[in-house]
Amino acid sequence: MPDAADILRLESIKVHFPIQGGLFDRVLNRPAGAVRAVDGIDLNVRRGEIVALVGESGSGKTTVGRVITKLAQPTGGRLLFEGRDMTSVQGTSALRPYRHRVQMIFQDAYQALNPRHTVFDIVAEPLRSLRLVKNGTQLAERVSEALAAAGLNPPGDFVSRFPHELSGGQRQRVVIAGALAVRPELIVADEPVSMLDVSIRAQILQVLIDLRDKYNMALLFITHDLPLAWLIADRIAVLYLGRLVEIGSADEITFNPRHPYTIALRNATPQIGGNPCRAELPALQGEVPSAARVPKGCRFHPRCPLAFDRCRQEEPPTVEVGSRHMSACWLNER
């Protein structure tokens, strides 16, 4: 549902990675197939909204984030930012205005920091590359402002340190400071707290929520943790093997899930308070299939306890099951 308030819109985005076939395949000129990491997803994020993208490992969450931040080129679909088609925009200078407005927080804070750069260099890099400051004073001002906003106080204590001289939580704050230094309108946060221990998690989440409240910044929060998504997000999108199986408000998805996969995820985490789930369902069996061999029909059917004939044959359409609540399951037809 297109909306004027949408800052970001993904329209049937696909990312298929070609598989390098073996010698045998090449001699026989046999196509080796593709890893369908993202297989046609529609998603919109509104200005100032926090949307959580939830899914198991390998479901394609990071790939979606990389498409949005222009690190991966989609093999199909469109990426729209404020209604402008950004899908085929390429090149450092052409992307500069976009990078100014869309930033990313990476999954592994240690890997995301160049071990030979100081905290100052790291946070200053986007400001310099995107030419957002005129002189050194302004640069130092923006860097310390960003460090303070990310909770590194006083900034002067951190600027000349190297990444290995920081704790895990401090490193993640440096990554956040680098992303928010340019004052973006959308941040893609890829599992920003999954590597941190519980006490630091809450602080980092608070930093992100404050950013939204203060600057009306939109956030796409990628996580594998449904309760965490419920805690931080306005809306939740559930990703399974490269497709969104359910999207809706955080409360709807958590307390009134309609897709068997979401129900299973929900039941696997009994610590969420409030009313119990509508449907009772046995626990999930089996492993997530490889994105290189996506099952025919509904891609969830091999693991679905409620699967029937139609699920094995046809892929279910995404239909509205409540107010702004969409689900892709044949059970919705009944």
Binding site: R96, R99, M104, A112, L113, E125, L130
Partner: peptide, 8 residues
């Protein structure tokens, strides 16, 4: 990747 997102 981070440097690329930073516009370098």
């Amino acid at each position: 990747d981070r440097a690329r997102v930073a516009g370098s």
